[in-house]
């Protein structure tokens, strides 16, 4: 990134605007399409999916449930019914394959809110950031399970902005708009990526799941990196990049192994040198033969 320039400028120049925003656009399409499926019922009377993100039934046969909500039900001393358990299992396996925090970047509606806050933050050049530990989310995850255990209720779902926004959009918002605004302001003024990157226990849960997930981003052509730092600038969890991108000397493989990488693909988008690509966790040998997988054609187009 040239001084004063915006991240991704080189990529736009080299590859064009659309290719340099490919994953961003795909993610928005995915987030809105999933929301659209839920809304098609109540708005248009087309009942493909019923329910909301906590638990749903697709086409009357496919149950899907949020494993974290089920975990809270267990913690509160109840055993969910088979439909919910089956739905939870399907979702669990899905995210174990595609990446835990794919939930965050490809599904969660709050991500659109916090991404917008981050975009505006960059635009307004807001620098200050409250000191929040990014481990807070694990503490919060533990705390919500503890509260469920002590009160015998799924207490977190009383305040969870993620399910609140989804349920609100599909069933009626009430005052939940206030929560959306609060999260936006939190990310805009209190701290960079304060909600998704530091506090959200839902993200923490899917992050833990992501530790074991198969599909991962890899700095597959890391020796092409010219230290423009564009990827660090756009990455919502930028601490996950360094070990993979700069680990060649230490014998660390190029695959981003942190569960907190959201598989958003923004790093792939903005890198003008095509360093990143989606791979799997199994292609993480540190001595990667590079020349064979070089897609120079895309760069030159």
């Amino acid at each position: 990134m040239e001084p004063g320039g915006r991240p991704g400028e080189e990529a736009i120049r080299v590859r064009g605007w659309f290719p340099a925003h490919r994953y961003l656009i795909l993610r928005r399409v995915s987030q809105l399409a999933i929301l659209g499926l839920f809304l098609a019922g109540p708005w248009l009377g087309i009942w493909i999916v019923k329910g909301n993100i906590a638990s749903s039934l697709t086409l009357g046969v496919l149950p899907l449930s949020d494993p974290l909500v089920l975990l809270q039900v267990f913690a509160s001393g109840h055993v969910p019914g088979t439909a919910a358990l089956l739905g939870g299992l399907i979702v669990l396996v899905f995210y174990l394959v595609v990446g835990g925090r794919v939930y965050c970047s490809w599904v969660c509606p709050v991500n659109i809110v916090t991404d917008s806050a981050e975009w505006l933050r960059r635009r307004l050049n807001l620098k200050g950031s409250a000191h929040l530990s990014d481990k807070s989310r694990y503490w919060l995850l533990g705390a919500i399970l503890l509260v469920a255990m002590v009160t015998g209720s799924v207490a977190w779902e009383l305040v969870n902005p993620v399910s609140m926004v989804y349920r609100g959009l599909v069933f009626g918002m009430g005052m939940a708009w206030g929560v959306v605004v609060a999260v936006f302001l939190l990310d805009l003024f209190v701290g960079r990526r304060a909600w998704c990157g530091h506090l959200c226990p839902v993200g923490a849960f899917y992050g833990l799941l992501g530790e074991a997930a198969v599909v991962r981003v890899s700095a597959i052509r890391r020796e092409h990196c010219d230290d423009c730092m564009d990827c660090f600038a756009v990455c919502p969890e930028h601490q996950v990049i360094r070990p993979a991108l700069k680990g060649a000397d230490k014998g660390v493989g190029p695959v981003i192994m942190s569960g907190h990488c959201t598989n958003c693909g923004r790093c792939i988008d903005v890198c003008g040198r095509d360093v990143f690509a989606f791979t799997t966790r199994f292609s993480n040998s540190s001595r990667q033969p590079v020349s064979g997988v070089n897609h120079k054609s895309e760069v030159s187009s």
Binding site: G41, W47, K50, G51, N52, A54, S55, S56, L57, S65, D66, V69, L70, V73, S76, G77, H78, P80, A84, A148, G152, S153, V154, E157, S163, M164, R167, G168, V170, F171, G172, M173, G174, M175, A176, G178, V179
Partner: peptide
């Protein structure tokens, strides 16, 4: 009390009520 531990607030009951009797509590 135990209902609040077991219900995951999915609204599937609301959807299948043919008379639109049920609703989910909003904030």
């Amino acid at each position: 009390a135990s209902f609040q531990g077991a219900c995951i607030r999915c609204g599937l009951c609301v959807r299948d009520c043919p008379y639109n009797t049920l609703k989910l509590a909003e904030l």
